[in-house]
Design a protein around this nucleic acid. Structure first.
Length: 597
DNA sequence: CCTTGCTGTCATGCG
DNA sequence: TACGCATGACAGCAA
């Protein structure tokens, strides 16, 4: 993890990473961010932020009072309009804007506001902020510029397209006011501070979304918020005054003044997977559609913030895999791999060409070669893809892969990944033992490397574990060539079959164990029966012996009419069915006696 | 060098 | 028909 933290210089990167980590809490992800100390720090920051917000709201209320005092309500339109023409310079904007430059207004001067800000935010915020930040209307008025990265100098009003800065003069604004409005907006330092303000405001508007249903809504997008702000671009002071009372607390710039580093924990908690997807894919879309990471017009301005702030590369996302931390240098090596170096085999092995796509793949020999170079970027790449079925390896949140053209689809993929129940099905490797699985990892990396070679925009894990419908949808939404399609389907087939084979072997082993157990029990039964049989035989012999003794005893006691004993050879004792015993002559005698009768 | 166990993969059949 | 699953068979690898 430390490597990752070092690796991602952009704080927003870390924010997004943290989001993913938090999603993986019950999936076994570990990180120091979950430590008690870390949470305590978060709470402190939260408290500090709340305090700042209170102060800021108080300040805003004061300013509002001052503004209202110089405005009158138009009963027809319901708008507040300046008490022109007597005081043409006291529009809300100018109260706060011109004051700092003319110092003729009775409102706070620029320096005063700076001083106030410095007192309110004793940290470093005041460095990049000015009094103008305290006026949400102004912030909104510069909204079209808000997404501009700080590295990008704000365009001067003269170069702006009609939809951009400066916003139209507020309704009811006199020509003089309009001119002053334009003049104010053209001030470079004002624009600079407004840029800072709007960026911060945009980011902090995510705070109120904490625990809100929106963040749970899969359709929720980070960017509509920016659109919302863009819509408010034309809101001038009058409109602002009407809406100010009900303004979203998030519009208050207080939060926006906090350094990003302090916002990280809360942003982590606020941003969900979907918003992350949206961010990322908006990012990737923009990056693909604009080779310079920079777009023109309002739309680009509205979204350029995230791409510039969070330059996610595919490798960044791969690196998010739990347990797969690799440093930037490796990352660079990987990303710099030319296409020709991707290992595509032009001399496909005939034995492996059962599938038409085989000719596009790396041959096994190539893969072996890559497998045997653990330190090579290629093998490192295998760490980025994760085809692992361990429960703690449900890198669900990390299913985002290389830049994709389909945000919605990725969103859906992500949704699947986040679902813990769905993942549990295939995650248990039947034959997992504690022994190192180096070889299996190496084998798994083959498909991963192949996927990389053909620039498959999904992770192997996604390819294998997505449900059929989602898999097909994912495939249909990407323009994959024949080789990629074949490889993806092969990866999926092999992955499924591998799990099936593991399960099959597990069942086979269970059957063997069960049969062995059954055999043991049958042997025991046999022993018992043999013992019983032996005992019965012994008893039978004993009984026969006793019977014989009894017979001889009884027979010896028998006497004929002359007092002589019967010869056992001529007579025998027989028992009738009614229990009576008869002395029966032997057959020979019986025959003779029969003849006599 | 041979044997054994493990694992991935392929082919095939079934539902 | 496509797909997933089950399973026998085979090959590669490591101990």
């Amino acid at each position: 993890m430390m490597e990752m933290e070092v690796m991602h210089s952009g704080q927003q990167d870390m924010d997004l990473i943290d989001i993913l980590w938090k999603q993986d809490i019950d999936l076994g992800a570990r990180r120091e961010v979950f430590d008690y100390n870390h949470r305590q720090k978060e709470h402190e920051l939260q408290r500090q932020r709340e305090l700042e917000e209170e102060k800021k709201l108080h300040l805003l209320r004061e300013q509002e009072k001052a503004l209202l005092a110089q405005l009158q309500l138009d009963e027809e339109t319901g708008e507040y309009i300046p008490r022109a023409p007597l005081q043409p310079a006291v529009t809300p904007l100018e109260v706060t804007q011109n004051a700092g430059f003319t110092e003729t207004s009775d409102a706070m001067s620029f320096d005063e506001c700076l001083q106030l800000l410095a007192e309110t935010f004793p940290v470093e915020e005041t460095e990049n902020t000015s009094v103008c930040l305290d006026t949400p209307a102004v912030s909104a008025a510069i909204g079209s510029n808000m997404m501009m990265s700080t590295e990008q100098p704000a365009p001067s009003p003269a170069t702006l397209s009609p939809g951009q800065l400066p916003p139209p003069a507020p309704q009811g604004m006199s020509p003089d006011l309009e001119e002053a409005w334009m003049e104010i907006l053209s001030l470079p330092e004002l624009q600079e501070c407004l840029n800072m303000q709007m960026e911060d405001t945009l980011e902090t508007t995510a705070y109120p979304l904490q625990n809100s249903p929106e963040i749970q809504n899969p359709n929720y997008s980070f960017y509509p918020m920016t659109d919302e702000k863009a819509n408010s671009l034309t809101v001038g002071p009058a409109e602002f005054m009407n809406t100010f009372d009900s303004s979203n607390p998030s519009m208050a710039p207080a939060d926006g003044l906090s350094p990003m580093t302090e916002k990280t924990p809360q942003l982590n908690a606020n941003l969900g997977a979907e918003s992350f997807c949206n961010i990322f894919y908006q990012n990737t879309i923009l990056e693909e559609s604009s080779g310079q990471h920079r777009l023109e017009g309002n739309e680009s301005a509205a979204v350029s913030d995230v791409p510039n702030e969070a330059p996610f590369t595919p490798m960044d996302l791969y690196s998010l895999s739990p347990g797969d931390a690799f440093d930037r240098s490796k990352q660079n090596l990987i990303t710099e791999q030319p296409d020709s170096d991707s290992g595509i085999s032009t001399n496909a092995s005939p034995a492996k060409s059962a599938y038409g796509s085989e000719s596009f793949r790396c041959s096994d020999s190539d893969m072996e070669e890559m497998d045997q170079n653990p330190g090579s970027p290629e093998s490192d790449y295998s760490e980025m893809f994760s085809l692992n079925f361990q429960p703690d390896d449900a890198q669900a949140a990390i299913s985002v892969s290389t830049p994709s053209k389909q945000p919605n689809e990725q969103e859906k993929n992500h949704k699947h990944k986040v679902d813990p129940g769905e993942e549990s099905g295939h995650k248990n490797a039947p034959f997992t033992k504690d022994k190192p699985k180096k070889r299996s990892d190496v084998r798994l990396s083959r498909d991963e490397q192949r996927a990389k070679a053909l620039k498959i925009p999904f992770t192997v894990d996604m390819i294998i574990n997505l449900p059929v419908d989602d898999f097909n949808e994912m495939m249909s939404k990407h323009q994959l060539n024949e080789a990629q399609l074949a490889l993806v389907r092969d990866i999926r087939r092999r992955g499924k079959n591998k799990v099936a084979a593991q399960n099959c072997r597990k069942r086979k082993m269970e059957n063997i164990v069960g049969l062995e157990s059954e055999l043991d029990s049958l042997k025991e039964e046999k022993e018992r029966l043999m013992s019983e049989k032996s005992k019965n035989m012994t008893d039978l012999k004993e009984m026969k012996w006793q019977l014989n003794s009894l017979y001889l005893e009884v027979f010896g006691m028998l006497r004929d009419e002359k007092g002589n004993s019967y010869s056992p050879s001529e007579y025998s004792l027989q028992q009738s069915t009614d229990g009576s015993v008869f002395l029966v002559p032997r057959i020979k005698k019986t025959f003779k006696s029969d003849n006599r009768h």
